[in-house]
Design a protein around this nucleic acid. Structure first.
Lengths: 338, 338
DNA sequence: GTCTGGCACTCGCACACCATGAGTGCCAGG
DNA sequence: CCTGGCACTCATGGTGTGCGAGTGCCAGAC
């Protein structure tokens, strides 16, 4: 079991290492933090912490640095979330309020997060599956070719072409449009399939094929993989990573280009609050030397998507968590207003 | 004036340096290329080339490397565009044909370019201003709130909210929708303003305010800055840049995050063919050690947007130019088909 | 039992030194 | 105008060394 003081030592090590980027020794520790004990005592505590796997030394004659396990303990037990200051909060709000549409909200959020945390920011677009339908529109582009436009409560718009098996009259089109909207408008995406099931039956036999085609296109749109888009930014912050450049940064850049990887990354975090995944806790190899801080955000009380940052495991966790949480909160507000 | 052989020497230097990334000396040159003269002669030629500013030596006792000016001469006079091989062309075509919508086309193009050239790829979305209107749709979301949806011939969709000064009836809406489409469908964006000018006059006085509002929103959409979106990829290739990492790569990453910068970059290239901007020819400071190879692409004969790659000035120009040109050609085809 | 000061030990890092050799410029002769 | 020869420069890499930060351990104090 770790005594109170040993935890305090670990906290001091994490804080110093995050600040200086250099392994921290026993003497420096006692000087910068008033632990009330001598370096020798700290050394003993360090030896114990090392035995337990919370810290390690890069070389025999160097100071200690925290391990992933050490950071984990720090995040779980030793550090809170550092709240943003009032001016910071105002700045966030002001910056986000200038957004004109959903794309802009996401773009601004990415910039903001990247600037606040000085790390790589990742923002997922509000997911279709968790939002509700605002409107469905059908346009006849040609006698047997329709365009289906789906508008969500978060302002997102998806469109699909529909090639009809048979020509489809203007009247039938208006009818379908009206029926469709009266059923699904305001409903959650997940409920839509059940709501439109027997819709074809209301139409003439000749039109049923087309109606079915339209419906299946609609349902496809709801589940389609590209529903999960995201935007990243602040990659220039990767240059502040470390000294042993290419080897670390390369796999990270590669991982960041794989949207699938990132989506999985964000998706894994089920926690209602801020989630932190440290180093090897990330499934993807390329991200083994990074930590991911993420949180859900949404227009109502409920999360419709996630956002977060990717940075070195040696990061300011309390500050980053605070920034991520604050941004998520304000983005939620903005989405709710629009 | 530079003799034929001196140009040949320059070509050899560029080729060797691009291949090896190391300054090339006179002896190595005569060994790898059969110039038919001795190293001493080559040295004299090199001295001349250096006087003219085409090459430089990093240190006194090192070989020569091409300067920006040297690359410029190489690109303009000494190198052609290396055409893609047949299998490569087939691969490009196959890869692009799998795309399901415009976003996907752009995304695939970026990946493809990045892989082919092993550099950073930039693809601009087909610009609104140079395309034509396929359809304009108006939806009533609330009595005094409309949504305007604009669909282009390149498959792009833009939507805007319109808050009406007064409630707008269903009949008037249908009327406006019909009149609008009959006037602008199939027309170029640049012609739209003239075509809708006197449209409000056809409506009752009470509706004119709303009609005007809708029209001005439509016109805004046509010129809005965010019409010029773009997508980038292959940033991981930046790690192959050089040995003196952070200092070079940092400003490049920063520049790549500024869409404005990139758009200007692509926009500057007015050439109908492949354009190459080398090193300091790029206005943006951060890109002074990079070259940009870009070209326009379009669904018809006409260019509606640009695409290109950003890489180190030390790049394989003929190959890169060939890849860029080929990809642009096939993307154009794909867009024309859809 | 816990903390402390002392002490010997380890070892990475920075610096200096030197030998090597690739590459150059210049010159005299073909 | 080209070539071979020659003296010179200088970046690079390997070795050696001193320094100092940091450690582990132990004996003694509280």
């Amino acid at each position: 079991m770790l005594s109170e003081r040993r935890l305090e030592v670990l906290r001091a090590i994490v804080q110093d290492y995050v600040g200086t980027e250099e392994p921290v020794g026993s003497k420096a520790l006692t000087e910068r933090h008033n632990l009330g004990v001598s370096p020798a005592t700290v050394r003993n505590d360090m030896a114990a912490l090392e035995d337990e796997g919370f810290i390690a030394q890069p070389h025999t004659s160097a100071g200690r640095i925290p391990t992933d396990k050490g950071y984990r303990l720090f995040v779980d037990k030793l550090a809170g979330v550092k709240p943003m200051t009032a001016p910071e909060r105002r700045a966030i709000q002001n910056f986000l309020e200038g957004a004109v549409d959903l794309d802009d909200v996401v773009a601004r959020t990415v910039r903001l997060l990247a600037q606040l945390t000085r790390q790589v920011a990742v923002v997922q677009y509000p997911s279709l599956t968790r939002s509700t339908v605002r409107h469905v529109e059908l346009l006849a582009l040609a006698p047997a070719r329709l365009m289906l436009v789906l508008i969500t409560d978060t302002g997102r718009v998806e469109q699909r072409m529909v090639d009809c098996p048979a020509p489809f009259g203007e009247a039938a089109l208006a009818d379908l449009r009206a029926r469709l909207n009266s059923r699904v408008a305001g409903r959650r995406f997940t409920d839509v399939p059940g709501l439109v099931e027997e819709l074809p039956e209301a139409f003439e036999a000749e039109d049923r094929g087309t109606v079915s085609t339209v419906l299946s296109t609609l349902l496809e749109t709801l589940v389609e993989e590209n529903e999960e888009r995201l935007m990243i930014g602040g990659t220039a912050n990767l240059t502040r990573f470390g000294h042993d450049f290419p080897l670390v940064i390369r796999p990270v850049l590669e991982a960041l280009e794989e949207q699938v990887v990132l989506l999985k990354l964000l998706g894994e975090a089920k926690d209602p609050g801020v989630t932190v995944r440290i180093g090897h806790e990330n499934a993807h190899e390329g991200l083994n030397s990074t930590s991911v801080v993420s949180v859900g955000y949404g227009s109502g009380g409920e999360a419709v998507a996630k956002l977060g940052v990717v940075g070195p495991t040696r990061m300011d966790y309390p500050g980053t968590m605070g920034a991520v949480r604050a941004v998520a909160r304000y983005v939620g507000q903005i989405l709710a207003e629009s």
